[in-house]
Write a protein that binds this DNA or RNA. Sequence first.
DNA 1: TTGTAGGCGTTATCAA
DNA 2: TTGATAACGCCTACAA
Lengths: 339, 339
Amino acid sequence: MIRIRDVAKQLNLSITTVSRALDGYNDVAEQTRQLVIRTAQEMGYTPNRAARQLRRRHAEAIGYILPAARPLFSDAFLSEFISGLGDEAALHNYDLLISSAKPNSPEEQASYQRWIQSGKVDGLVLNRIRLHDWRIQYLTAQKVPFVCLERSLDNFEFLGVEIDSYNGFLELTNYLIGLGHRRIAYIGGEPGLKIEHDRFSGYRDGLAAAGIPVCLELVELGDLTSEGGYRATESLLQLAERPTAIMCINDPTAIGAIHAVHDHGLYVGNDIAISGFDGVADAAHMLPPLTTVEQTVYSTACLLAKILFAQLVGSEFSEKQVKTRPRLIIRSSTGGRRI
Amino acid sequence: MIRIRDVAKQLNLSITTVSRALDGYNDVAEQTRQLVIRTAQEMGYTPNRAARQLRRRHAEAIGYILPAARPLFSDAFLSEFISGLGDEAALHNYDLLISSAKPNSPEEQASYQRWIQSGKVDGLVLNRIRLHDWRIQYLTAQKVPFVCLERSLDNFEFLGVEIDSYNGFLELTNYLIGLGHRRIAYIGGEPGLKIEHDRFSGYRDGLAAAGIPVCLELVELGDLTSEGGYRATESLLQLAERPTAIMCINDPTAIGAIHAVHDHGLYVGNDIAISGFDGVADAAHMLPPLTTVEQTVYSTACLLAKILFAQLVGSEFSEKQVKTRPRLIIRSSTGGRRI
DNA sequence: TTGTAGGCGTTATCAA
DNA sequence: TTGATAACGCCTACAA
């Protein structure tokens, strides 16, 4: 390992001078600076992170804990989300630390506490926010910078990005009603989730505005995965009177729904309309292509990270709170040619 | 922030004693140990990671750099892969550090060097290995522990997991030939990739064994994404004599291919057979469900991490090199009912 | 403009 | 069984 003292010795300079030349202080002769920078580069010197962290008292890393309900999970949303966070972090020369935990589990709590208390990360990114989320209370109390995708009912001084799920689902519901659907089912997620609350509300209010009563047998509980969507759809298809449309809380759920409908020998988009929410890249490549509400996951992740960095390093980015209106993307899974 | 000295002061003990009680040394009175552990817990003490790293000279973190060809990418393979690495790392109380870089770019090189030289990670996980891969030479020279998914031609002392892509593709080719296909196309990835080499070889040798010449117009270059698969398939469909089957290097490519075939008004599984490779969860939820060669991404990632940890902490896991035979999963994208 | 020295919080060596 | 002390590599008052 090459240390700063090795560079200093090589140049017959003091450690101080080398350190300051590298860090861009202006009290070092320009000529010396150039020499130092060049030599450090040649020698392949990179400051030891542990030492720097200890001294500077920050980690130059942000953290994100994956909401993994089971050890094995797969979610197209997450790879886009992670790459957005990672790219933005890299721009600031920060690292992205990843862990995974079952939402609302003791392990989740332990992970957050360990990261905070041990100083491994300077800030955190949260998603899958619960209506009452201990994470927000905890991080606020600990004064740890964090940003959220979606807000909870607790955090008044919300920092982050909020996707207007409610209006997205409202618009989608209106669209389906406009197509003539009356028996519209909904497959959601765990009740305490903010997105569940918002999206279901959009669905409910959309129906109400058209004078259609919410029919409880048409409301199913999924788990945000394809498997959950498949199972929930199977129940719906066994009803005496089948729904003519199924609105799914997210794209993976919708993908499972499409599959279930197909396995029942029915035609998606024709016999039954299916819609999702997220707009992950794969949604366009489904057969039939999936009608969805697009929230541009990658750029949202970048935006979240930008907001976090604005807090951490006082970067020029000034937005603290962004509310975006997702875009309804109509594809043939809600009607169109027979496949 | 609570430091070890705070705990020591609280108990009127020396820092040394507290440190050793917590670390499980046996030269501290059992009674003292219990007291220390309890108090530390009550006070919410967690060792500062930077200080510990500096002293112990390791980071308790492993790293993985995503092969992201473009800033925005999405790959079902990766979310499974990352969660496997993360779960296994968590089991050892290690963190997983994530970054992304364009394969073979100067930034990729800079990222690896920075992580190594700054001591941010104790070991690395590599995939998308190139036939001649500077990473392997560099990490070997630096004596940094690492594991690979797939091996290169350079590393004789290969540590990691090798999926037998060659035989997987051979078997798949034989299967398609057995179905009566003669014009079988191949959509691959960047030429220097190990998986491209192996999978193409399996395809070529499979054809050769059946006395079918490789027809260059049927060999297309993709980029491992759905978009690449879509474009390549469009070219194939414009040939005077269309292929009757298309073997894709991975599942995303196959998903793009299915979509392109569909857009041309043809029936996948009927007019044209399509196959993938990876066996990510979504493949089963495609329409039609995708025939693929399954490599159980999640458990492979866990296995890779296990091998890495065996090096890092001398865990009980003794396998150093695992070669797995992937499993051919036949679904209706290579023939079956019309959808 | 450059150098000296002290300390960040922890662990390890050695002495008590 | 416990405690004093010296590092780990870096940054930064302060002195020269």
